[in-house]
Amino acid sequence: MPAAYDTIGINYANLRQPDPRIGAAIGAALGDAATVLNVGAGTGSYEPTHRTVTALEPSIAMIRQRPAGAAPVIRGFAEDLPFADKAFDAVMAVLTVHHWSDQPKGLAELRRVSRGPTVILTFDPTHRGFWLTDYLPELITIDVAQMPPMSAYAAALGPVRITPVPIPHDCADGFLAAYWRRPTAYLDPRIRAAISCFWAIESLEAKLERLARDLETGAWGEKYGHLLELESCDLGYRLVVGRG
């Protein structure tokens, strides 16, 4: 979705800050890799600062938002990585696989250029339980259509380790489920602008009117108020680690 991100990504850097707890999980999975390729790098979230990182990103809008001092970036696509076989100690890809036009080819490319781990943060499309889908069932349809099944990773990468990534209640990275304990955030068009799936739902404002009413009347709290006692929640995000 590179062209779409030239629109979606306009204010991405401000709304999609890396969460340190998620970053720690990614860093641990990278092991002792000294050179890392970040595919679908966006504005540079989760790029480790103590390693030599090369970033690859298709969207000009995202590239322009990379901060001063960020890793050098190449404009390109996961499906056709411009690097030699086993060029990097590790490869990482964070919440990007669902935007690729040819996911099996992109995953094969990640494996090709890594001589060590391939670390992917993604979402399991079979996961259910996020309350927002009660208001926007289209989110399930979108996930099933664009998210690879978890079996696809082993098929492309060989043996993989897949672990849940619990989302903290105060997650700094504003992806879809980040605001699971802050429901009013989904009524803010500025926040929604940096979440790609919202751009695919027609008449979104009208469909969110029921959420607004339920928050005002207390109906949301009656049904989901128990979530406010949780520090983190498994919402289907998964860390996939292939070993080359």
Rank of each mutant, 00 (worst) to 15 (best):
M1G: 15
M1F: 13
G9W: 00
R16F: 02
Q17N: 13
P18A: 05
G23R: 07
I26K: 02
L30M: 02
L30Y: 07
G31D: 04
L37R: 03
V39H: 00
G44F: 00
S45R: 13
Y46P: 02
P48Q: 07
H50V: 12
R51V: 07
T52H: 15
T54M: 12
A55E: 02
P58M: 02
P58D: 01
I60M: 15
M62F: 08
A71H: 09
P72N: 11
I74H: 03
G76M: 04
D80E: 09
D80C: 09
L81D: 00
P82N: 03
D85V: 15
K86M: 13
V94C: 07
V97M: 05
W100L: 09
S101C: 05
D102W: 03
Q103D: 06
P104W: 09
L110R: 02
R112Q: 05
R112P: 01
V113C: 06
V113R: 02
G116V: 08
V119R: 07
I120W: 00
F123H: 11
D124T: 00
T133L: 12
L139Y: 11
T141I: 11
I142P: 04
D143C: 13
D143Q: 15
D143V: 10
M147L: 15
M147W: 15
P148Q: 13
P149R: 12
A156S: 06
G158F: 11
P159Q: 14
R161K: 14
I167H: 03
D170L: 06
C171H: 08
A172F: 10
A177K: 12
R181A: 15
A185P: 04
A185W: 08
A185K: 10
Y186H: 08
L187E: 06
D188R: 01
R192C: 00
I195W: 06
S196P: 03
C197Q: 14
F198V: 07
W199K: 08
R210H: 14
A212N: 09
R213G: 09
D214G: 13
W220A: 06
W220Q: 05
K223F: 09
L230V: 01
D234F: 09
R243W: 13
G244E: 15
